[in-house]
Design a protein around this nucleic acid. Structure first.
Ligand SMILES: [Zn+2]
Length: 211
DNA sequence: ATTTTCAAT
């Protein structure tokens, strides 16, 4: 089990402030990304590194992560001149916001060129996804088509992040009011964006049809 | 609250 120095971990208050899945997350002006990098060797995965990043000077945190990725994943681009023998990695990230359309496009391009990298995304809140025809919604669909699984964080994900990325001083994660309701609401919204049938939607549809 | 959203000073 890899562990980090306390200084490398997120302070508790900071984690709660930025990851709280409230409907109106005003005035934060920052986005955090907690990541786990695993090496894939056949059917097995080995945790290779983990940590967190924050957006810097006009650069969204997702693109900052892509810049770091070469250093995080030795051999991702292969060893020899022809770039053969690429090593396989899986990355899971937990971001306080879902990606904007620009980041989604760049991520899709990156993943297209890097089939030996698998990406799994959890988000706390949906970024600019209110309008039916928002580009951000389209970006999330593009990512899904590129093979990225995107989910809204639920209690178990906050619980995991708390013990993995936060300087929690052995304290247990304590859910805020509305964590569950907000997570369910956002999950339904994401499901609708990704055009998946949601159980509640199905119930509504059946009721409408008189069943 | 008809609230905001990876700042701009
Ligand atoms: Zn972005």
């Amino acid at each position: 089990m890899i562990t980090k120095l306390d200084s490398m971990l997120l302070p508790r208050k900071k984690f709660i402030y930025h990851y709280k899945n409230v409907r109106w997350a005003r005035g934060r002006h920052e986005t955090y990304l907690c990541f786990v990098v695993k090496r894939r060797v056949g059917p097995d995965t080995l945790t290779f590194d983990f940590g967190h990043l924050r957006n810097r000077s006009g650069c969204h945190v997702e693109l900052l992560f892509l810049r770091y990725l070469g250093a995080l994943c030795p051999g991702l681009w292969g060893y020899g001149a022809a770039g053969e023998k690429r090593l396989s990695y899986s990355v899971t990230w937990f971001c306080s916001w879902s990606p904007c359309v620009n980041c989604s496009i760049q991520l899709c391009q990156f993943l297209n060129n890097t089939p030996n990298l698998r990406l799994r995304i959890f988000v706390s809140r949906l970024y600019f996804c209110d309008l039916e025809d928002s580009l951000e919604r389209e970006g999330l669909r593009m990512l899904t088509k590129a093979g990225v699984r995107i989910s809204v964080m639920s209690y178990k994900d906050y619980f995991y992040c708390w013990q993995k990325f936060v300087d929690c001083k052995k304290s247990n994660f304590k859910a805020w009011e509305e964590l569950h309701q907000n997570s369910v609401r956002l999950t339904r919204k994401l499901n609708r964006i990704l055009q998946a049938w949601d159980l509640e939607d199905l119930r509504d549809a059946l009721k409408l049809l008189g069943f």
